[in-house]
Computed example of a mutant assay.
Amino acid sequence: MTSTDLIAALEARVVAAERLAQRAYDRGAVENVFSKYMHLHNVFEDEQIKPLWVKKGTAGIHAQYTNVGVYTDYDSVMAYHSGRPSPAGKLILHETTTPLIEVAEDGKTAKGFWLMAGVESGLSDPANVGTMPEFLYEPEDKNVDGKRVWTHWVWCQYALDFLKQDGEWKIWHFRCLEVTRAPFSENWITFANKNQIAFDKIADVYSPNRARKLDVPLPSPYKTFADVEEY
């Protein structure tokens, strides 16, 4: 091998190493964006969540929160994050885990998939209880200060697409798919049997009457976003 060939080979290795390092850095940056989202979501700081999204005018922005309600433009997504109720006594603690993140070879987009286990709870004025099924609440002998108590375990999947804009990773597509939940005083099997009517059309929601399967494909290595299915 001539010195010219050796230099060319070394330069190629440096370029490949730089690309690999950039993708590793981008993977960490993507994970940080979603982690920041979840920490802010847990304390109802939605005004700080808004800048984590792609900028207004970005084509294709959409979000799905739990198994109902799809928001298909920037304004509706921002409206969801405006004035989210956070009364005294309400607790949201969603803990995400098992991240599976793939950054595209071209470095322009990324896909991420997470599992979440958490709790949701709060107090309701008895006058408002009739708007929701009775089985969502704890028994009346568990009332606190005359208010009905709702305390739920909840398990979800999060599937997100990210877009790099102006050198920063932003949330582009967002899907939260609730797998199952259960009140504190009940197990998830009997509760799912009662609550299945709410989620009959979602394949991945747990039911005692069907086998589990993924509702969305897991991220896998890809070159450009045109090669994959969007979340």
Results as ranks from 00 to 15, higher is better:
E138W: 06
E138K: 11
E138Q: 15
P139Y: 10
E140M: 08
D141G: 04
D141H: 13
D141E: 15
D141T: 13
K142C: 14
N143E: 13
V144K: 14
V144C: 02
V144D: 05
D145C: 05
D145N: 14
D145S: 11
G146R: 09
K147C: 11
K147L: 12
K147I: 04
K147M: 14
R148W: 07
R148G: 02
R148A: 13
V149N: 03
T151P: 00
W153T: 10
V154G: 00
W155T: 10
W155Y: 10
C156T: 08
C156E: 11
Q157S: 05
Q157P: 00
Q157F: 12
Y158D: 10
Y158V: 10
Y158I: 07
A159T: 12
L160V: 12
D161T: 06
F162E: 03
F162N: 02
F162Y: 15
F162M: 13
L163W: 06
L163D: 01
K164L: 02
Q165A: 04
D166G: 09
D166S: 12
W169P: 03
K170T: 05
I171T: 08
W172R: 01
F174H: 15
R175S: 11
L177S: 15
L177Y: 07
L177H: 06
L177T: 15
V179Y: 07
A182S: 15
A182N: 15
F184R: 13
F184E: 09
S185H: 15
E186N: 08
E186C: 06
E186M: 15
N187E: 08
W188A: 14
W188I: 05
I189N: 08
I189H: 11
T190S: 15
T190P: 02
F191M: 04
F191T: 09
F191A: 05
A192Q: 02
A192V: 04
A192I: 05
N193I: 00
N193V: 00
N195T: 08
N195L: 07
Q196S: 14
I197C: 03
I197R: 08
A198R: 13
A198W: 10
A198T: 10
F199L: 05
F199H: 14
D200F: 03
D200G: 06
K201R: 10
I202F: 05
I202L: 07
A203D: 10
D204T: 08
V205P: 00
Y206P: 05
Y206G: 02
Y206V: 01
S207L: 03
P208I: 10
P208C: 09
P208F: 09
N209T: 13
N209L: 09
A211Q: 10
A211N: 05
A211R: 06
R212E: 03
R212I: 00
K213S: 11
K213G: 07
K213V: 02
L214Y: 06
L214R: 05
D215Q: 12
V216S: 04
V216N: 06
P217F: 01
P217I: 03
P221M: 01
Y222P: 01
Y222M: 02
K223T: 15
K223G: 10
K223I: 09
K223C: 05
T224R: 08
T224C: 02
D227Y: 04
V228N: 01
V228R: 07
E229V: 13
E229F: 02
E230R: 08
Y231N: 07
Y231F: 14
